[in-house]
Amino acid sequence: MSFYHTVFNTVFKRNSVFLTTIFAGAFVFQAVFDEGVNKWWEARNKGKLWKDVKLTIPGAGEEEDDE
């Protein structure tokens, strides 16, 4: 009861605070979620990504001449 009371009083009571919570939550969540998924993806595909592969290609970074 007390917990719901606190949540109601801090978040839902004022419409402006409710809206701020939604927008701030959306803004922070998208950044955190994006970072998290990227980290997971890069960990899962370690060794297969361009940043890992390009180190194993001989001559990468040198000038390429296609004649």
Binding site: S16, V17, A31
Partner: peptide
């Protein structure tokens, strides 16, 4: 007080849509 609260909401709203 209301203006301050709504101003904060507006800033975060703009931040969300210009992210």
């Amino acid at each position: 007080t209301s203006l301050i609260f709504w101003g904060t909401a507006t800033v975060f709203g703009l931040a969300t849509f210009t992210e």
